[in-house]
């Protein structure tokens, strides 16, 4: 099926962190993913774009262990993690900020962050990492004693990202971080994500906002009805007429 994938532009060579081969996912009788192939290199930002129902979220959920794939192989840092449950993947360096943010609304910002470091016991370093996240998102420091449910949408998204980073992941999975946010807030969040990536974090990003995602990503995949139909470096995809027509409304 890789013949069907149109590839644009060069990909900067990096050691692989995540590889996904022939990933299939079924919801009952419905096949959501029909053999997705993708990879994320160390320190790379990879965007997954596509229309509603293309399988972006399903791909992410299968990678993070929230969904059991019916076929395919997923490896993280060279180790086979196919079908492994989400809570076992966290200690292996997978952090997933799920769609709809998934913050704990009735817990305070501080408690949310504490839960981000749930599996860690290095108290001093957790505190230092929390300091870092307060530097990334200063507004969270002001709100630390507030219930997370009372934050604005943007602040909740920031909290979700900060919390995911507190598990000290190798790979950060983000599902629609721009969902329902004002353009300015989205910009702030993406600026921060760039900073996080510049510090070495690998990111797999699912976005409907193709322009935003591709302008930040080193590499991107276009998903259509459960398959990767196009891949390429961010810039090349942004300039490709097909992508511009289908996803950027030109």
């Amino acid at each position: 099926m890789s013949e069907a994938v149109k590839t644009l532009g060069e990909r900067e060579p990096r050691p692989p962190l995540l590889t996904v081969e022939g990933l299939k996912v079924h919801y009952g009788a419905i096949q959501a993913l029909k053999g997705v192939v993708l990879s994320v290199g160390k320190g790379e930002v990879v965007a997954l774009i596509g229309a509603n129902g293309a399988g972006k979220t399903s791909t992410l959920r299968a990678v993070s262990g929230m969904l059991k794939p019916s076929a395919g192989r997923i490896t993280l840092a060279g180790q086979d993690i196919t079908g492994m449950k989400a809570h076992l993947l966290v200690p292996r360096g997978m952090a997933h900020a799920p769609e709809g943010r998934g913050i704990f609304p009735n817990l305070t910002v501080q408690e949310n962050l504490d839960l981000g470091a749930y599996l860690r016991s290095d108290t001093a370093e957790i505190a230092a990492d929390q300091e870092k996240s307060f530097k990334l998102f200063p507004v969270l420091r002001e709100r630390r004693k507030q219930l997370a449910g009372t934050l604005s949408g943007g602040e909740q998204q920031m909290l979700a990202i900060a919390r995911a980073l507190l598990s000290r992941p190798q790979l950060l999975l983000l599902d629609e971080p721009s969902l329902g946010l004002a353009p300015q807030v989205t910009e702030t969040i993406f600026r921060t994500l760039r900073e996080v990536n510049a510090a070495g974090m690998s990111i797999l990003l699912v976005e409907q906002n193709a322009h935003l995602a591709l302008s930040m990503a080193h590499y991107g995949y276009v998903l259509e009805t459960g398959e990767v139909v196009m891949a390429g470096n961010g810039k090349a995809l942004l300039e490709s007429p097909e992508v511009r027509k289908a996803y950027l409304g030109e």
């Binding site: 989400a86 809570h87 799920p98 599996l119």
Partner: peptide, 8 residues
């Protein structure tokens, strides 16, 4: 879902 994503 979020709890699971935290490693619970």
């Amino acid at each position: 879902v979020a709890a699971e994503a935290m490693g619970v």
